[in-house]
Amino acid sequence: MLRLLAPLGAVLLLVSSVAMAAEVPTPERAQALLFDAAKLGRADLVPALVAAGADVNARDARGFTALILAAYNDQPAVLDALIAAKADPCLPDRDQGNTAQMGVAFRGHDALAARLLKAGCDVNARNKAGQTALMMAALFGRTAQIDMLIAAGADPRAADASGRTAASVAADQGNAAVAAKLTK
């Protein structure tokens, strides 16, 4: 429980210190708070944290950018604030190579999927296993995202490192309707 409260406490501390103009956090502290703000939906803090030296494209200890954290946690206002602050929506995470687009396909955040598609990233970007956002959407039966991704140019014939396509991923999950849709 304390672990969950720590980020919230840190963000509240920053808000009070910025509001009182008592202290500007160090760039290192601003960076940590930016990751917390991304997860917690505190878009209002993004400009102040960037001004205090937070790098919008830095990766946290687990290899995620603030934008990936905002997308994964369904924080549209933070995603918009980060993009406005020049965060790169196309950067993958450090370890697996997953993009924010892949994260929203995994989590099922359709509105964020649409926002990210407008950012102009490669719709066929691959992670280190050769998987695409379309494959992840197929894995979880995210039909709205499948439609969006295909309309944006996603290649349903692309195969991952093990030779699986989005259709075969859907079929392996027992989702024949999605597999059929992807083979048309």
Rank of each mutant, 00 (worst) to 15 (best):
F140K: 04
A114P: 07
S16D: 14
L45F: 01
V104D: 08
N73P: 09
A177F: 02
G174Q: 02
L8T: 14
I68G: 05
A38R: 10
Q131G: 14
A21D: 13
L13F: 03
L8M: 09
A176E: 15
A105C: 15
Q145K: 05
V169L: 00
A21W: 08
A87Q: 03
A111H: 02
A66G: 07
F35N: 03
A166Y: 01
A85P: 09
V178T: 06
K128R: 08
K86H: 07
A166I: 02
A6W: 02
G63L: 09
P92S: 09
D44Q: 05
Q75C: 09
F140I: 11
D110S: 11
A71Q: 10
T99E: 13
L40Y: 12
N57M: 05
A151M: 09
D110P: 03
G108C: 09
A100L: 14
C90M: 01
A10M: 11
A179I: 05
M148I: 14
A81Y: 11
R142I: 12
S17I: 14
D55A: 06
Q145G: 07
R94F: 06
F140V: 14
F106G: 12
G141R: 10
G174S: 03
A52G: 11
Q173L: 01
D122G: 14
L149T: 15
A37P: 15
C121K: 01
V24H: 00
G130W: 08
V78N: 15
V11S: 13
V104S: 05
N57Y: 00
S162E: 08
Q31V: 00
S16V: 12
Q145C: 03
F35Q: 01
P76I: 01
A167K: 03
M102S: 15
K86P: 04
T183L: 02
A87D: 06
L91G: 11
A144V: 04
A129Q: 15
L45P: 09
A19F: 00
N73I: 06
L91I: 14
L13T: 05
A167F: 12
L14Q: 11
L49N: 13
D122S: 10
A21Q: 08
L116A: 10
Y72E: 01
S168Y: 01
A166D: 02
T183A: 02
A6H: 01
D36S: 14
V15C: 11
V24F: 03
L8V: 14
V15T: 12
A171D: 00
R42G: 06
P7L: 00
V123T: 15
D155N: 10
V50G: 11
K184H: 14
D110W: 09
A170F: 02
A105E: 05
I150N: 04
S162P: 00
A113K: 05
T165N: 14
G163Y: 12
V18P: 11
G41D: 07
G141T: 14
L67R: 11
L112I: 15
T132E: 12
K128Y: 04
G108S: 10
A154K: 09
R115Q: 02
A30V: 07
L45H: 02
D93W: 08
A71F: 12
I146M: 07
L116I: 02
A48F: 04
V78K: 15
L2C: 04
A170N: 02
L34G: 08
L45V: 06
A105D: 08
L33V: 12
D147F: 09
